[in-house]
Design a protein around this nucleic acid. Structure first.
Lengths: 111, 111
DNA sequence: CATAGTTATTCGGATAATCGGATAACTAGG
DNA sequence: CCTAGTTATCCGATTATCCGAATAACTATG
């Protein structure tokens, strides 16, 4: 098999997208922003984390083009740039749900 | 909004699934295994990485229940346990493809 | 232009992830 | 049982990531 081309592509996929999903707060940010666009301060309130932390995570999501940042007066409004990211995460969420269900099933059978 | 429940879920999602996708070699492993089940040695040849590295990554994918391991004689055959992981990755790949296309588009317009 | 509000960046320290060689554990075959 | 082949784990070292306080940069308003 042509592992060469596939390897290049997966490396790129990781660098440009997956690495951004490698932190729980960034995943949460994406879901919160999926509800509606918000400014940084709102996100600070939502996630109850220091502003520098939020801003840094937003910078990473911005680098990967997963969110848009639009200045409105003093605020910068962040929004999801591609809803397919949520679609993708939702699939993983469904996998997790089934895994958990399977585990409790096994637990119930052994009792 | 109920950030509490969402936060718990995203934390779990990260711990149990997304963290496994946080390494380019593991992503590649998933795609290679998606073609067909393979034993560790085959994967070592495919990825051209030391056996200990491959085995460690496989252990992580196993922990997260993203791959199955089945002993067959001297070999351990690994396979994808849930094709939806690939489905999810393919969506991210599509996003990446569009991003790249958009970038080259911009590049062409400025020339 | 001084000030207050908002956001971005810098910084050092702490934690976690990854690597590959070495070794151990396991399995089949002679 | 001894050996060869396969896979898993251990280990130290390197590298990467994350954190939050402090600070800088930017924006509107008086």
């Amino acid at each position: 098999m042509d592992t060469k081309g596939l390897e290049n592509e997966t490396t790129l996929l990781h660098e440009r997208i997956c690495s951004a999903l490698g932190d729980p707060k960034r995943i949460l940010l994406l879901y919160v922003l999926n509800e509606k666009p918000r400014c940084v301060n709102d996100l600070v309130d939502c996630l109850k984390s220091p502003q520098s932390t939020i801003s840094r995570h937003l910078a990473i999501l911005r680098e990967k083009n997963l969110v848009n940042a639009e200045r409105q007066g003093m605020n910068v409004i962040y929004s999801i740039s591609d809803p397919r990211v949520i679609e993708s995460l939702d699939i993983l969420r469904a996998i997790l749900r089934d895994q958990l269900q399977e585990q409790t099933q096994i637990l119930n059978n052994t009792l």
